[in-house]
Write a protein that binds this DNA or RNA. Sequence first.
DNA 1: TACGGGAATATTTTT
DNA 2: TATTCCCGTA
Length: 656
Amino acid sequence: MKKIALQKDTTVTTYRIHYEQELNAAQLEAVLHTDGPALIIAGAGTGKTRTLVYRVARLVENRIPPENILLLTFTRKAAREMLRRAAVLLDGRCQRVMGGTFHSFAYLILRRFAEFIGFSPNFSVLDQTDAADTIQLVRTEVLGKQKQRFPTKETLRSLFSAVVNLQRSLSDLVEERYPQFLGVVDRIEEVAQRYRTYKQQHQLMDYDDLLLYLLQLLQDYPDIRRQLGNEFRYVMVDEYQDTNYLQHQIVIELVAEHRNIVAVGDDAQSIYGFRGARIENMQDLPAVFPECRIIKLEENYRSTQPILNFANVILQNSVELFPKHLYTRKQGGDKPAIVKTETEQQQSQYIVQQILEFVEEGIPLSEIAVLFRAAYHSMDLEIELQKARIPFQKFGGLKFSEAAHIKDVLAHLRLMLNPTDAVSWHRVLLLLKGVGPRTAQRVVEAVASGKLQIGRSNDFSSFGKAASSIESLFRLLGKSATELSTPADQLFAVLEYYRPILWDRYDDAQRRWNDLETLLSIADRYEHLEGFLTDIALEPIEGSLEAVQPVSPEEEILTLSTVHSAKGLEWKVVFLIWMVDGRFPPPQAQESIERMEEERRLFYVACTRAKEHLILTYPEQMYSREHGRVLTLPSPFLQELPPDIAEHYIVVESEE
DNA sequence: TACGGGAATATTTTT
DNA sequence: TATTCCCGTA
């Protein structure tokens, strides 16, 4: 007789995570949803990230290979953070999930299939300033001697980008945004055309190209589309309300086979319209996938009820959004405060003083943030914070890696990688004494024709007094290949070379030098120069140029941030400064209803960052360029609020 | 051809 | 306010 024994049935999965206990009903429904399309509409603070994190874990627990899961987020930081949390929740397998932005994902895929779109796998990625510099190159070609008024490189770049992201014609956009340039639209078109071919010839892609070519690849090669569809069998997209047309199409192509798409978003938080974001993408999803399940998360876990009431009122005044009502089970809490100060300085002093009081009460600096509409709005406050020795980190505005000295140094590194990069040659050569555009051009041509070559001895005698400095540049670039093996080594050599140039060019050289040392510590994490440079292009280093006081441990730093950069984050205490007409919203936005609506959503995003205390401030006076000191009006968003939704205060000065 | 000085110009948000 | 543009001078 056969002996019968028991063995564990491994085909029945037992779960390590107690999903039912740790999630609310709606969240649970979203997490347990495995196959097929789903749209999760998640209000602010309703545990959207938590839901995504648990869903990643759940899929992995369901034995779906992590490599087959794709998590697309708005920043790479967000993706990393979610996967880290999933790994803590479950185990290290979650770290193997593919996560990143649309752009970083596109980069990865395009490298793999570069040949299909006529590129080499080593193409480089242009960040915004690189793109503008490249445009400048063709711009001068097209323009020649003519001195008719013509858009600047940055204007051109934003125009070209809008053409791609908004899917509109160049002439339409020129007419709408820059009617003064309607007369030269043909030449603008010519620059656009040349820019396109220039990029192709030199193996360059800007941000828009990454999306454009990925979509093209998916649409033109069904085999590749199927292959990728199988590989990324489960796709999750965060912040769907801020995807643009191209990104939406990419998603549709990618999930065409398996239809496993989970999109998460909140139409009330769409704030990237200027970049082509379309709320409609979210609304379209059920039309594209009729079997799409719709799940709403409405219970808020972040804020107190008075803050939510305030936020709800903001949306009530919106003309186009679906009514939305956030609620919480949290009891109590103060009403938001609206504080009028006389001047900007008084506003800053008030904030500093309040921060100190909150710290006194035991709220750590890391739980406090000051938000504002535009990066430059915090200038005065930054000075006051420095005086009070409150350490802070600033997000938004000019990026660390966009600063001139950083770009200078990176240009040298790019030449080490790719000696045919004309834009970098220009940048690097113009740093030298006695070298102007003409000489730079000569050098670029000589390199292209092989008359000059990095890594061998050259004859520079024709360059007159600039000869010796050009020679030392070539010596530096020639060094790289043989003697320097890591990105950090290479950067170190560049810094040695660049140091005297820096001190000669900038009064604040020491501060900039500190930035460069920071850059060195970042480079140290990389093995290959290529990866280092691409990462910097795809994910410009956040944070201000202002040296963050390095003394204090990281948790003890105050956050200053634009509202845009604060998206998805939360703090116990949130200040929102400059709630003044013309600052929030800015004047340009007031020209159209759509843009005003976006500003309103932005205001909503700002207010829903606060967990316990929300404090809005506005000075009664401000300086304007033309008129000097002028009186302000409170932001229209404040004026339309019912009086009892917040407490109103006026700052009065008193002796100690 | 380089470069300095002064004028013009844009100035919201970001991958 | 800071960068870019334009022009005259060396």
